[in-house]
Amino acid sequence: MRIRASVAAVTGALALSALAVPAAHADGTSAYRTEAVKIVKGTHAAAGKQGIKGVRGDMPYDLNVSFSNFKVAKAIKVGTTNHVATTVTYTMTHGADVDITADDFLSGPYLYKGAFDTPDNMLFGDLPATCRVVTNTTATCTGKVDIYPDFGDLWNSDAGAWKGGAIAIAYNGQDEEDPDLSQVGLADKGGLGSTLVQRYSRQTVNASPEPVKKGKTITVTGALTRASWDDSRYFGYTKQSVKLQFMKKGGSAYTTLKTVKTDSKGNLKTTVKASADGYFRYSFAGTSTTPAIDSTADFVDVK
């Protein structure tokens, strides 16, 4: 399990502190992630159930709250610098003895990579979810997961499949910065949903010469690149199959002419015979770690 400079990659323990300070620093790192490092001493898994130890060595009690109907985007595309926020909705069911309208009751979604008890990484929202009371024991909640790639939230190895979880915490009048954890209720559940966190992709195309005589050779070049979260740059996506497509002027759909593989630097190059005025593009189908993308069209005038 990793500990980042800006994100403490812990389990339910991080979630507890995550909701303790619902605010965001100017550098993009939410305050709760900083607080997590201060108040969480460690995590442990016992009998398959997550527990935490706090500053006073106490344990929070199990809060009578469960989660269902967790919905998150199928894929989340993250570049190198821009803050990305994805909306999550879920249903929260609770015992009649749990006051979810209390000022110090908080709930929120999160995403985690790897095993629930020992995740490789976790992503939370800058603020807790907003929950709307439906009945005296149910509420519908809407929250966000915020991602800041330029502040170390992700590494390249994090790309791919993630799972969703949710948390609820009742402070019961405790000081949120230094609570007696034995008086705090905590519900933390993983495996509620799934998504892909993907490295943002870029695709270019250039067909030349322009114009060209009918029957002559057109050379179509391009490059497929994707975000590197390790160093905040874009690099070529190597050895990937990309379709060269063409649409005649006045047409409404592209036709695949051939499939080309990117080289060791992510570059593409192939040739075709000029037949008619039209548009060329490269189309990448995507992978679990990198989203599908089509280049913009490049028009060639055939004389």
Rank of each mutant, 00 (worst) to 15 (best):
R281N: 05
C141F: 05
D27V: 13
S107N: 12
T262L: 03
D99T: 11
D126G: 06
V300E: 01
A274R: 03
H94F: 08
A23C: 07
V220W: 00
T204E: 06
V205A: 08
G165F: 01
Y237N: 06
R2Y: 10
L181T: 03
N69Y: 06
G286N: 04
V272D: 00
T101F: 10
V40Y: 00
D230Q: 11
K258N: 10
R2G: 06
F284Y: 10
K163I: 05
L127I: 08
T296I: 13
D146G: 10
P119N: 03
P128V: 06
D231W: 10
V7L: 11
Y237I: 10
Y171L: 10
V78T: 02
K265D: 12
K71H: 05
R233F: 12
D104I: 05
K248E: 15
T271D: 07
L268G: 00
N172Y: 06
F284D: 00
T130G: 09
A5D: 14
Y112V: 00
V72W: 01
T137D: 07
L224F: 06
A8L: 07
V134I: 12
L123E: 00
T80S: 09
F70Y: 14
Q203W: 05
W162A: 03
A285Y: 02
G57Y: 07
A23T: 13
D104H: 05
T290E: 01
Y61H: 06
F116I: 14
T34G: 15
E176W: 13
G165E: 02
K239D: 06
R33G: 13
T262F: 07
T86G: 05
A36P: 00
I3W: 12
N156P: 08
W155V: 10
K303S: 11
A13N: 14
T255A: 13
P109I: 04
A129L: 05
K269I: 05
S264A: 13
D103Y: 12
V65T: 05
D146F: 08
V133W: 12
W162Y: 07
G28S: 09
D146K: 07
K214C: 08
V21G: 08
Y237G: 02
R33Q: 14
Y112Q: 02
F70I: 07
N82K: 14
Y112W: 10
K49Y: 15
A207C: 09
A223E: 09
C131K: 01
K41M: 10
A96D: 11
A227V: 04
S252V: 10
V78I: 11
V7D: 02
K216L: 07
A285H: 05
V302A: 03
F280G: 00
S17N: 03
N64L: 12
R226L: 10
S107C: 06
T296V: 14
V7E: 01
I218M: 01
D263M: 08
T142S: 13
V78Y: 01
I147F: 04
P128W: 03
I76Y: 01
H25A: 15
A274F: 05
T34N: 15
V7H: 00
R2F: 08
T43P: 03
S264V: 11
P211G: 07
D58E: 14
A13Q: 04
P22C: 05
G143R: 00
T225N: 05
